[in-house]
Structures are given as C-alpha cells and as structure tokens.
Amino acid sequence: MAGGRKTTKGGKSARSAQAALVAGKGKPWGTIIAVVVLVVLAAGVFGYTYVQLNAKHEQEAALAQWTPSDTNKDPSDKITGVVKKDYPSGLHVQPTQRVAYDQAPPFGGPHDGFWADCMGIVYPKAVRSENMVHALEHGSVWIAYNPDEVSGSQLDVLKQKVNGKQFLMLSPYPGLDHPVSVQSWGHQLKVDDVNDPRIDEFVKSLLRNQYTYPEVGASCDALGSGQFDPANPPAFDPSKPGPDAVPMSGQGATNNGDQRQPSGAMTTPPVVTSTTKPNG
C-alpha cells in the first residue's frame, strides 16, 4: 500500500524521493547496530566491574574497621562497652602466691611466671587467674563465661570461636557478673549473649594486636607438667584473696627485669654499692 503510494508520488517529486532512497541506502545500519551493541556491552562491563569492586571494597572496609593499623591502633575504641585499663607488665608471682586483682575476671596486673596454654584451648574447668593473666600478656584473648548461665548449645557457640584457634582460650569463671566476659591485656567487654557481634569484633581488634599487648611475639605454647599442664591446670580459687596476697601495685612480686616498673613496686630505693658505682 505504502509502496504504491510512493510510486505515484515518485513522479511528483522525484528529487526528494531520490534523496530519501540515497539516504536509506547509505545509512550504515550494520555500523549503528554494532555501535549500539558495543556501547551497551561496554556499559555492562563497566557497571559489572563497578558493582563488584564496590561490594568488595565495602567488605574490606568492614574488615579493616576491626583490623589494627598505624592509623587505627586500637579498633576496640569503637566497640561500645569495652573497659580499658593501663597495667604495668612483667610482674611475676610464685605458684603459691595470689594476686588481689582489681577486676573479675582480671585483665592485667601481676601474674604467675608460668603462662596458661593459649593456643586455642577450651578449659572445661575454671583455671587459676594468675596463669590466665600471663597468657593475656602474650597477646591472647580469653573468653570467660558464667557456668550457671552459659551451657549446652550456648557454650558450643563459644567453643566454636576458640577451639583450635591460636591465641584464644575459653574457660568458665564462677560468679561472673555477666554471662560472658572477653579479656585481652588491659581490655574487657562484658556481654549477655554468646551471639553478641561485639565478641568477634573484640577478638579481631585485640588478638595479638601489636599496639596493645606488652610482649610482641611471645609464645602461647603449653609449658607442661610442673609448670602449666593444660590437661591438669592449677584450679581457680573462688575465695577472697587474703592479706598476704600481692596487691595490684606488684609489691612482693618479682620484677621481670627489663619490664616497665610500676611506681608503687619499689619499696626501697635501689642500693648502689661501691663496686658497681662508676668512678668519677
């Protein structure tokens, strides 16, 4: 129909028809389609790449938030509820001594010379705090729970986080004032739910964080029987420490030598003998 009309019209204005024909013939449909397809493909490639990388960046940023770095030395500062205290390191007590800790569970202060095994160990029974605190000094994170409030599948959630994971330990802590308390050297977070995401954030922020524990590179290996036997560790003492307990200042503790000395630890000024005194 249209063709017929066009033919009749052809005589009327041959020039314009001819022009239209030339234009139609010269129009590079193939090129136009190819270009459109190319642009769509290019946009697709760019869009896909952008979306993928964006997702990856977001994921990395989420992880980096809890990764210690020179500009983010203590990521736990962003975790609500973390208590921080500054403790002098390297103050050792004897296996027969107790420390009058200022916190329950303690997360710093004088401690036994033998550290607790902290190579991803699940302690079924409560362990002597003096050994556990030494393990914190070596960069570990200790997850403690109240055995009256956490058991069964709840406890399994915590075991899953610790079992076989280097520099983590889990133990009950009788009388704990919250269901769960997580400690690293100088840091503590108490939570009510084993699934609280802050537990993992705390672990990521502080486990072997070179900016927050005193002895970078220290071992978490078990010392063995006679020192610290992981199969039969010294038991937790629920009683109140007596008047003979070593105070938080470290008075009565042996200093580890090269460690930072707390101001209260020195009861007498150092005696300089004539033999060690330099002449002149």
Partner: peptide
C-alpha cells in the same frame, strides 16, 4: 565509539 572506549577504559 568514544563512549564505549571510555567505559571499557574506566573498567
């Protein structure tokens, strides 16, 4: 073509 090249280049 220029747009396509720019998009691919950006990707």
């Amino acid at each position: 073509a220029a747009v396509a090249i720019l998009l691919l280049g950006a990707a």
